[in-house]
Simulated scan of single mutants.
Amino acid sequence: MFDPAFAQRLVLLNGLFPLALCGWDGFRGQLGANPLEFILRLTGGLALVFLTLTLTVTPLVAWFGPPWLIRLRRTLGLLAFFHASLHFTAYVWFDKMFDLAAVGVDVLRRPFILFGMLGFLVMIPLAATSTNRMIKRLGAARWKRLHRLTYVAAVAGVIHFYLFVKADTTMPLAFAAIVGLLLVYRWLRAQQLTTLGLDPKR
C-alpha cells in the first residue's frame, strides 16, 4: 500500500540532496572560480524549481486524481522557501556583508534585485501560514486566497531569473512558459467554477 508520508520524506531528501553535494564540493574547494555566483545560481534555481512544482500539484490532482499529491504541495512550498532564504542570505551576507543600505541601493537601481526581493518577501507569509494550526486560524477560504500569492512569487522569480542571466534566456523562458500555462489553467478553472455557479475564490 502506498504511503504518502514516505513520498513526503522522499521529496524532502531529494530536495536537500543538491545542497549536500554543494556542501561537499565547497569542503573540497570545488565550487569554481566564483563560489558565490555558484551558490546564488544553485539556491535561486532550486527555489524556482520547487516553487513551480508547487503550482503544478493542483492541476495534476485535477487531471490524474491521486489525492496524496496534495500532501506534497506543502513540502514543495517549504523547500522553495528554504532555498529562497538561502539565496537571499548568501546575497545579503557574502555579497553585501549585511550592508542594508547597499541592499536598498541594489533594490532601487537593479530591476532583477527588485523582482527577486519581491518574490522572496511574498513567500514569507506563505511559509509562516503553512501549518495546520494557521489554516484553522485563518479559515480555509482566507488561507486559499492568501496562498494565491504563490503565483505572484513565481512570476517575480521568473522575471528575476530572466533579468539576471542577460545572455542565454532559454531556461528563464522555459520557466515563464510553464508558469504562464499554470496561470491560464487557473483562469480557465475559475471560469468553469463560475459557470457552474460555484465561488472561484473559495
Rank of each mutant, 00 (worst) to 15 (best):
M1Y: 14
F2G: 00
F6Y: 15
A7Q: 14
Q8M: 10
Q8D: 11
V11K: 03
V11P: 02
G15H: 09
L16V: 11
F17W: 10
F17Y: 09
P18V: 01
P18C: 02
D25I: 02
G26F: 02
F27D: 06
F27I: 08
Q30P: 07
L31H: 12
L31E: 14
L31M: 10
G32Q: 11
A33K: 08
A33Q: 11
N34Q: 14
L36S: 13
L36Y: 10
F38W: 13
L40E: 09
R41Q: 15
R41M: 09
R41N: 13
R41P: 02
L42T: 03
T43C: 04
L46K: 03
L46P: 02
L46H: 00
A47Y: 03
V49F: 02
T52A: 00
L55H: 02
L55S: 00
T56K: 05
T58Y: 06
P59S: 04
P59A: 00
L60G: 07
L60F: 08
A62I: 06
W63F: 04
F64S: 12
F64P: 05
G65S: 11
G65M: 14
L69V: 02
I70G: 11
R71T: 08
L72D: 06
L76Y: 10
L78W: 13
L79E: 02
F81K: 03
H83M: 12
H83R: 06
A84V: 08
A84S: 05
S85P: 06
L86M: 15
L86S: 01
L86R: 05
H87G: 00
F88A: 01
F88W: 03
F88Y: 01
A90S: 10
A90W: 11
D95C: 06
D95P: 12
K96P: 07
K96E: 15
D99N: 13
A101S: 15
A102N: 15
V105Q: 15
V105L: 15
D106V: 12
R109G: 04
I113C: 02
L118Y: 05
G119K: 00
L121Y: 04
I124T: 03
P125M: 07
A127N: 14
M134F: 15
R137F: 09
L138A: 04
L138E: 02
A140Y: 03
A140T: 08
R142E: 07
R142T: 02
W143T: 04
L146S: 01
L146M: 09
H147F: 01
R148H: 09
R148D: 11
L149M: 11
Y151V: 09
A154Q: 12
G157N: 06
V158A: 05
I159P: 01
I159F: 00
H160P: 07
Y162L: 05
F164Y: 03
V165C: 05
V165F: 07
K166L: 01
K166R: 14
D168G: 01
T169K: 10
M171P: 05
L173R: 05
L173M: 10
L173E: 03
A174S: 12
F175V: 00
A176H: 04
A176R: 05
I178E: 07
V179S: 05
Y185A: 00
L188A: 09
L188M: 05
Q191L: 14
Q191R: 13
L193F: 06
L193C: 04
L193G: 06
T195K: 13
T195A: 13
T195M: 12
L198P: 09
L198W: 12
P200T: 03
P200D: 08
K201V: 11
R202K: 08
